[in-house]
């Protein structure tokens, strides 16, 4: 059966609409991600020709103490970021009251999220300053002498992560506030009639309804922890002596400072692999929910 010309046009339009965005995304994003893996199998200074080295970049990673520092720091980031969803939920519960000034308070709680990470970084460098920072002030108040957290290889990563936690908590709070607004009023009412209170109410009636939101908050916090870069660059540049690098930052350093693009690409690939675990977990759940919806 011949389709009319018009009908053909109808079929072609979607393809034409899809093409520009899709092509750009495929070329710049997808192709680049694949190419990174290819580069990781080479030695390359970024200018000259690439030489095939097989898996030796990865072998080198295994023996590189800096790599293990980065990996350990990534684990610390993940662990500390687990705090973001519960803290966000706590603040969301705190401000979810219909009292006159609460709207403004909510907006102000969101604020850290709107600030650029560079801004947050600068603010926290100031906060941690051992001579005049807020932290120092607190220590003085208790008669202790303040530590220079950003120059301590034990504390530096924690200090940076806590700074990054600030906007992340705000983000989780937004998600939970939205979740709290979609709670089924009748189920809450039923819970009240059954005399559920406080913790019981939260545990048995509210949280089950927030499962979807909590999942998203958790997934996004984990992914956010793994991709953190800006704040390390601004606050410590990976220092002191490389003790606060993570895979993302080390990758950047190896490539752009040491001109070891192949090695950098190998680091990026490892990061990619770790991230993929979380992304696949997230995608599978998302698709499952989409199907069942």
């Amino acid at each position: 059966m011949l389709r009319t010309r018009r009908s053909l046009r109808h079929r072609a339009t979607p393809a034409l609409l899809l093409a520009p965005g899709l092509l750009l995304f495929l070329v710049v994003i997808v192709f680049s991600a694949l190419r990174t893996f290819w580069i990781s199998l080479h030695a390359w200074d970024g200018f000259g020709p690439m030489t095939w080295v097989g898996l030796s970049n990865y072998a080198e990673l295994w023996g590189d103490p800096q790599f293990w520092v980065s990996l350990r720091n990534n684990v610390i980031w993940l662990a500390v970021f687990l705090l973001a969803p519960p803290m966000g939920l706590a603040i969301a519960l705190l401000v979810n009251q219909k009292i006159r000034t609460m709207r403004l308070a909510k907006s102000l709680f969101f604020m850290p999220l709107v600030l650029s990470t560079v801004t947050v970084g600068v603010i926290f460098v100031w906060f941690y300053d051992p001579s005049y920072g807020l932290l120092a002030l607190l220590f003085h108040a208790f008669g202790a002498s303040p530590p220079a957290v950003l120059s301590s290889d034990t504390w530096v990563t924690f200090a940076v992560v806590f700074a990054a936690l600030w906007p992340q908590v705000a983000f989780c709070m937004i998600l939970f506030l939205a979740g709290l607004n979609t709670l089924d009023e009748e189920i809450i009412g039923a819970g009240r009639v059954d005399n559920a209170r406080g913790w019981q109410m939260l545990r048995h009636i509210v949280l089950p309804q927030l499962r979807q939101v909590a999942f998203i908050a958790l997934a996004i916090s984990m992914i956010g922890a793994l991709r953190s870069f800006d704040i390390i660059a601004v606050m410590t540049s990976g220092g002191p002596f490389g003790s606060s690098t993570n895979l993302a930052y080390q990758m950047y350093q190896e490539s752009l400072f040491s001109y070891r693009f192949g090695y950098g690409a190998a680091l990026a690939t490892v990061l990619f692999a770790i991230m993929m675990v979380f992304i696949v977990w997230y995608l599978l759940r998302l698709l499952r929910d989409e199907r069942s919806a």
């Binding site: 059966m1 011949l2 389709r3 009319t4 018009r6 009908s7 109808h10």
Partner: peptide
Amino acid sequence: VTRTDPGE
């Protein structure tokens, strides 16, 4: 009209 667009 088996293969015709709805509008037509």
